[in-house]
Computed example of a mutant assay.
Amino acid sequence: MVRRVKINGVRGRWVAEVEGKWLAVLHHLHRRGANGYEAAILPEHIGTKRLDDLLTALRENDLAVIQRDADPDTMARDGYVGVFRFTDLLIDKNTGISLRFTERYADPKT
């Protein structure tokens, strides 16, 4: 059975607090297949605190939160899918972020 955790996200932040750690919040719409993830880094986000926090969280942890996206245009959050362990992190400001999910770590508490 997958454990349940409290995910504390804040509107406008790209990280959420889970069990005392700040984890990256990734969009479910950027998943590729069962285990892949690919997201572009937009030029206007380079150098912003939100992106810096996201990249730091990805580099410092092997867990990330996946959010359910309400709208593909606004990417507004409609809750969380869960917390997932990942490997194969690649960050390139020209090509974006890619990684591979390896396991479901936890479901969100409701």
Rank of each mutant, 00 (worst) to 15 (best):
Y37D: 02
P43I: 02
R50D: 11
V65L: 02
T48K: 11
A76S: 14
F84H: 09
I7S: 08
D92T: 03
E38Y: 08
T102M: 01
M1H: 13
E44Y: 08
A34Q: 13
D88H: 13
D92L: 09
R4H: 13
L99E: 08
I66Q: 00
V18R: 04
R4S: 15
H28F: 12
L90S: 11
Y105L: 00
N8Q: 15
P108I: 07
A106D: 04
H30I: 04
P72I: 07
D71L: 08
D73Y: 11
I97E: 06
N94F: 09
I66G: 01
N94C: 09
N8Y: 07
E38P: 01
T74Y: 12
D53K: 06
I66A: 02
A70M: 12
G82H: 02
E103F: 05
G9H: 10
D62H: 14
V65T: 00
D52S: 15
R31Q: 13
L26M: 13
A64F: 00
P108W: 04
A16D: 07
L58T: 06
A34H: 12
E103D: 15
I66H: 03
Y105V: 09
G79R: 08
I7A: 10
L89E: 03
V81S: 03
L63S: 00
R32L: 14
H30Q: 10
D88G: 04
V5C: 04
L89K: 04
R50P: 05
D69Q: 11
A34Y: 09
L89M: 04
A106R: 05
A64W: 00
I46M: 06
E17K: 11
A40F: 13
N8I: 14
K49W: 08
D52P: 00
R3D: 12
L63D: 03
P43C: 07
R13V: 00
T48C: 08
L42S: 12
A57T: 09
P72Q: 10
T56E: 14
G47M: 09
I7K: 01
D71M: 00
D71G: 04
P108T: 10
E38Q: 15
L26R: 11
L23F: 06
M75Y: 15
A57W: 11
D52M: 05
V18Q: 01
A57I: 05
R85V: 02
M1Q: 10
R77P: 06
D92V: 01
R100S: 13
K21N: 12
W22G: 01
M1S: 14
D92F: 07
W22M: 12
P43S: 13
D71C: 10
H27Q: 14
I7R: 02
D62R: 13
V18C: 04
T74F: 10
E103G: 02
V65M: 03
N35V: 02
E19A: 13
A57H: 02
V83K: 06
V10Q: 13
A34C: 03
A64T: 03
R68G: 01
A34F: 10
K109H: 07
L58N: 02
K21A: 14
M75W: 15
A39C: 11
D71K: 08
I91E: 06
D88W: 02
H45T: 09
R11N: 10
Y105G: 01
E44K: 14
A106K: 04
G96K: 12
F101I: 01
P43M: 05
D53W: 12
G12A: 08
T102Y: 00
Y37K: 03
